[in-house]
């Protein structure tokens, strides 16, 4: 590898991480999705129900993490209340189901609308603030949603509410089938990945990325970042709301714990663990987080004693997350292009 930034005709950018890949073909996400698509076949050989349920959960959290990465990785908006959207999506399913509306055809639009509205209201206030204020105010709005859910005594209050069954799909009970549900979640994950990928590469995405790096410069060329940031916050919230719908269906249960601030923290952890600002890093991070939790908790009930310090070490020594490590390894082995 020649580190010299000489102008070259091919102009390979020296820091791929800072250039969200538009034209570049990315193999990693494709490999990821192919693996996820093949997994159910492998799962048939082992404990299928367990495997499918675990990986479905991974994919649902990956979806939530992608939505967070969209604003965190590309907009530097450190939302510490993102779990609220998981809860809003979940409660949209739970509450509608409790009133006999079990069809996803109604639940999903309601969930999207509710999360979008919540994002619009809280975003309009939060985005007026910067830095630490933004972190804390999103955290506080997340808590607000959490306490609101607890106060919903008609819907289980603290204990949450159990769904009688998974949602119907245009009257059909297909979601009850774990394989079908897996496929649906995977399809939605791929769809939202493609959507967010397109967004960050679009005109709109360029404004978001620019405002992340230098907001004053953005205003000096004539952009008011606020409107764009609010829009991307709403988009992100809606995608996370969709993840909430899926999570409620996967667990067949919704509870205020969906919105606990620790959950929001975990979402951030997932995004960072995988590698900030790459979208598929969020998928890897979600998988790493949940699998680590699964494995560690299999060994000891005090797995958090290991996980906490692990996080600290990641921050101190492994900036760039797993993708960063991967890039470093590839760089050392002579550039794997």
């Amino acid at each position: 590898m020649t580190p010299l930034p000489e102008p070259s005709t091919t102009a390979a950018p020296p820091r791929p991480a800072s250039r969200p890949g538009f034209v570049r073909r990315e193999w990693l996400p494709i490999i990821l999705f192919v693996l996820l698509a093949l997994l159910p076949f492998a799962a048939m050989l082992g404990p299928e129900k367990y495997t499918l349920s675990l990986v479905t959960r991974v994919m649902i959290f990956a979806l939530a993490a992608i939505s967070l990465d969209l604003i965190l990785g590309y907009g530097a908006l450190v939302s510490f209340g993102h779990a609220a959207f998981l809860g809003i999506g979940g409660y949209a399913v739970g509450i509608l189901a409790a009133h006999g509306f079990q069809d996803a055809a109604l639940q999903v639009p309601v969930a999207l609308l509710a999360s979008g509205l919540f994002a619009l209201l809280t975003g309009a206030i939060s985005l007026r603030t910067k830095g630490v204020y933004f972190i804390m105010i999103t955290l506080a709005f997340g808590q607000m949603a959490f306490f609101f859910a607890i106060s919903l005594s008609a819907y289980g209050g603290d204990d949450g509410l159990t769904l009688a069954s998974r949602s119907k799909l245009f009257g059909l009970s297909w979601l009850e089938n774990d394989r079908f549900f897996y496929a649906l979640v995977l399809a939605l994950l791929i769809g939202c990945y493609a959507l967010t990928r397109a967004i960050v590469a679009s005109r709109f995405g360029r404004v978001i990325r620019g405002a992340k790096e230098n907001p004053v410069r953005m205003e000096a060329v004539g952009f008011s970042p606020f409107r764009y940031q609010l829009a991307v916050y709403v988009i992100s919230g809606m995608i996370c709301g969709l993840a909430g719908v899926l999570l409620a269906n996967q667990a067949e249960f919704v509870a205020p714990a969906y919105m606990a601030w620790q959950r929001s923290g975990e979402l951030i952890v997932m995004v960072i663990l995988g590698g900030l600002g790459s979208l598929h890093g969020a998928i890897i991070g979600a998988a790493a987080f949940l699998l680590l939790e699964e494995i560690l908790s299999g060994y000891t009930e005090h797995w958090k004693l290991i996980f906490g310090p692990f996080l600290v070490l990641v921050v101190l020594f492994a900036r760039g997350g797993l993708l960063g490590i991967l890039a470093k390894v590839r760089g050392k082995s002579g550039g794997g292009r």
Binding site: F22, V23, I199, A201, S202, R203, F204, G205, R206, Y228
Partner: peptide, 12 residues
């Protein structure tokens, strides 16, 4: 048209 969500801006 900066609210356009699709289309690779780098190729415009």
């Amino acid at each position: 048209s900066s609210f356009r969500l699709f289309g690779a801006v780098s190729r415009e």
